[in-house]
Design a protein around this nucleic acid. Structure first.
Length: 274
DNA sequence: AGACAGGGGTAGG
DNA sequence: CCTACCCCTGTC
């Protein structure tokens, strides 16, 4: 078991906030699969204990432990509302997920919910991914695009109308294209992502934020819409476009972090027991 | 118990 | 701009 220091980090909040779906908790550890990487991890105070087929550098990048967290907080702390949200979700960090897994995860997310997305991802991994035995547990790596080639089998993952999007995405997402998306800038990456069926405005913002390190991305779902209308606009109805442009401008470079704090805070309010 | 609406969104009409 | 979409879950 290896050990690293991780101040200003909350493992549970980071994994459970709804940005990542390929993990489960057992025997006091989180078992995490990200593409072809897998590891177990637990937090004790400011330290992380982990083991798996990964390096320490991978872990630091995955959980953005190298981000200057205090500086980020300073940049987005524009008012009492966001400060309160930050207070309630302190330690939450944005994960840098493997791109293809992230794309499929958020294709699955439309008109869905966290438990169901997790189920879809696990089922797709079992059907198409390579099995690995690790710490007496059977894990499945997340498949490469070319490994997902059977529409009927995808349908068995209960992805419903999203199954055809998963299939098409897997056909189109060659290694070359994925590499291109990783190398290009925010607006270009977003354009390419939105050319996939099943990836629209919101889903592409999520992928930009959770896989491509574009921290100014600001995904607006119904939760963020309701919450920002309530907190910032006296419950007046605003369009998604307005909300996106307003908060990108308002919070600046780390708008995506502000979004995550508001989102986590809103969700936690809804279900205080968790 | 069994029907029914609606969900962290998107494409297509 | 408005709906259907596939499946699951919570609610009546």
């Amino acid at each position: 078991m290896r050990k690293i220091k991780a101040p200003l980090f909350d493992l549970r909040k980071t994994l459970e906030c709804g940005q990542f779906f390929n993990y489960f908790e057992e025997d006091g550890f989180f078992f995490v699969v990200d593409g072809s990487n897998f590891f177990i991890i637990k937090q004790q105070g400011q330290h992380l204990y982990f083991d798996g087929n990964i390096t320490e550098e991978f872990l630091i990048n995955f959980f953005s432990l190298d981000l200057d967290y205090k500086n980020m907080l300073k940049e987005i702390s524009k008012d009492k509302i966001i400060e309160s949200a930050i207070h309630r979700s302190l330690g939450l960090r944005i994960i840098n997920q493997e791109l293809f897994q992230c794309m499929i995860s958020f294709i699955c997310s439309s008109a869905s919910n966290v438990p169901k997305i997790k189920k879809n991802i696990l089922s797709i991994s079992k059907s198409f991914g390579n099995p690995v035995t690790f710490k007496d547990k059977q894990l499945f790596l997340f498949p490469l695009p070319k490994q997902i080639s059977d529409l009927e089998l995808i349908k068995q993952s209960s992805a419903g109308f999203r199954s055809k999007y998963i299939y098409q995405c897997s056909q189109i997402a060659t290694k070359e294209l994925l590499d291109k998306i990783k190398k290009t800038d925010y607006s270009d990456a977003k354009k390419i992502l939105m050319s996939f069926n099943g990836i629209g405005d919101k889903v592409s913002e999520c992928i930009c934020l959770f896989s491509l390190k574009f921290y100014d991305a600001f995904p607006v779902d119904v939760w963020i819409k309701r919450e920002t209308e309530r907190l910032y606009f006296k419950n007046e109805i605003k369009s998604k476009e307005f909300i996106t442009s307003f908060f990108k401008e308002y919070f600046g470079h780390y708008a995506g972090y502000a979004q995550e704090f508001l989102f986590y805070s809103a969700r936690n309010e809804q279900k205080p027991k968790k």
